[in-house]
Amino acid sequence: MCFKKDVLISFVVVMSCIIQTSRCASAGKNFGNVNFSFRRNIPYYERNATLYSASSTSVIASYGRCAVKCIEDLRCHAIELCEVNDGTECRATNGLVMTPTSTNQQGVCKQYFMDYSCGDEAFLDRRRGLCVFSFCSDCDCVRKYNAISGGYGLNIDGSAVFVLCQFDTNHTWTVIQNRYNGSVDFDRDWKEYTYGFGSVDTEYWIGTENIHRLTKAGLSTVRIELEDFDGDHRFAEYNVFCVANATYYYRLNISGYSGDAGDSMSEAVGDAKADGEMFSTADMGAHVGGKNCALQGRGGWWYEAGTACSKSSLTGEYGSNKRDKGINWDTFRGMSYSLKSSVIKLRRP
């Protein structure tokens, strides 16, 4: 792409300031109508989420190409200017730093974020309009910078994951599932359940892989909030909630019930419990050799591996009152009543 004359002039003028001092750059430098603000020095990473890179003996040349690509790509939120052996490398990235790996390059990179006023530790996701906290992997971390409940982006192992954070007086909750109006179809395949679907603006499932990572990181208390169409609100809370990794098909360990919705998931349920069961979808999982409960239930869940299926399923077809096919909680309205809403959220003990 060719630079417009006014953009090129502006770029050349500000580059000497950006390159020479982070103090000057921290105020925000204009590239056309977009500001890039210096945030921090970071190590040179071989595996960060690079969308585009340009290398040159000319700092201005590599930065210019990189900045234009970043502005054009809505996934891009940051550029990194790195000194390498044969000159300068500029990378357009999603702004999330991944775990470092071995590399032949040494030194640091200067990281510049697009300046959209989400604060010093966050950037604005241009596709969703939500602040992403680049060093936060759960809502406890977000609360240190912003204590207003709402939608935020987390950095879970280098990927931006969007969730609702709920900040109560005594607890901080990371919402992993939200359903309330049937706007999102939960009849999905294994891959979609693994990485998540939907939107924090409507309904969503955060993804079983992300649930595993959150519980592994210590978010091991779960609260399930339910509402029927008569406005009756109930909850079930478990003080043990652990999801294994993909090798074990995200097997669930759940126990320690309290609440007023009744226990429909733990070992106490007997047959059709969720505790100890693998996650399954219509195309993958526990139905091998048994009943395809996910196909029957029209959504992925921790179904019993035989024929009993489950005494709970919060991923079924919205509004369906056919037995075992809706949003069901056996001890609250039974398996032939589809609930109006369900929220599943995690916190630290």
Score class of each variant (00 low, 15 high):
Cys2Ser: 14
Leu8Arg: 11
Ser10Gln: 15
Met15Gln: 13
Met15Cys: 11
Cys24Glu: 11
Cys24Asn: 10
Ser26Cys: 06
Ser26Tyr: 08
Lys29Tyr: 11
Lys29Asp: 06
Asn30Ala: 12
Phe31Trp: 12
Asn33Thr: 14
Asn35Asp: 10
Phe36Met: 09
Ser37Lys: 15
Arg39Tyr: 06
Ile42Leu: 10
Tyr44Thr: 10
Tyr45Thr: 07
Arg47Phe: 11
Arg47Ser: 14
Ala49Ile: 08
Leu51Asn: 06
Ala54Tyr: 13
Ala54Asp: 10
Ser56Met: 01
Thr57Phe: 07
Thr57Met: 09
Thr57Ala: 11
Ile60Ala: 13
Ala61Gln: 08
Ala61Leu: 08
Cys66Met: 08
Cys66Pro: 01
Ile71Thr: 11
Ile71Ala: 05
Glu72Ala: 13
Asp73Glu: 14
Leu74Ala: 11
Glu80Ala: 04
Leu81Ile: 10
Glu83Thr: 09
Asn85Pro: 00
Glu89Met: 13
Cys90Ile: 02
Cys90Trp: 07
Ala92Glu: 02
Met98Tyr: 06
Met98Cys: 09
Pro100Lys: 09
Ser102Thr: 12
Thr103Gly: 15
Thr103Asn: 14
Gly107His: 10
Val108Glu: 12
Val108Pro: 00
Met114Ser: 01
Asp115Val: 00
Gly119Cys: 09
Glu121Gln: 12
Arg128Ile: 04
Phe135Ile: 05
Ser137His: 14
Asp138Leu: 00
Asp140Cys: 02
Asn155Ser: 11
Asn155Glu: 04
Ile156Ala: 03
Ser159His: 08
Val161Cys: 02
Phe167Trp: 06
Asn170His: 04
Asn170Glu: 14
Asn178Thr: 03
Arg179Cys: 04
Asn181Ala: 13
Gly182Ser: 10
Ser183Asn: 11
Asp187Lys: 07
Thr194Asn: 09
Thr194Cys: 09
Tyr195Asp: 13
Gly198Arg: 03
Gly207Trp: 01
Asn210Glu: 04
Asn210Tyr: 13
Arg213Gly: 00
Ala217Pro: 02
Gly218Asn: 10
Gly218Tyr: 09
Val222Met: 10
Arg223His: 05
Asp228Ala: 06
Phe229Lys: 12
Asp232Ser: 13
Ala236Met: 05
Phe241His: 04
Ala244Trp: 03
Ala244Met: 09
Tyr248Trp: 09
Ile254Arg: 06
Tyr257Gln: 08
Gly262Trp: 06
Asp263Thr: 06
Asp263Pro: 06
Ser264Lys: 06
Gly276Lys: 03
Ser280Thr: 12
Ser280Trp: 05
Lys291Glu: 13
Cys293Arg: 01
Ala294Ile: 05
Gln296Ile: 15
Gly297Gln: 10
Arg298Gly: 00
Ala305Gln: 10
Thr315Asn: 15
Glu317Thr: 12
Glu317Lys: 15
Tyr318Asn: 05
Asn321Met: 05
Asn321Ser: 11
Lys325Cys: 11
Ile327Ala: 03
Phe332Ile: 08
Gly334Ile: 05
Met335Glu: 04
Ser336Thr: 15
Tyr337Arg: 07
Leu339Met: 13
Lys340His: 14
Ser341Asp: 05
Ser342Phe: 04
Arg348Leu: 07
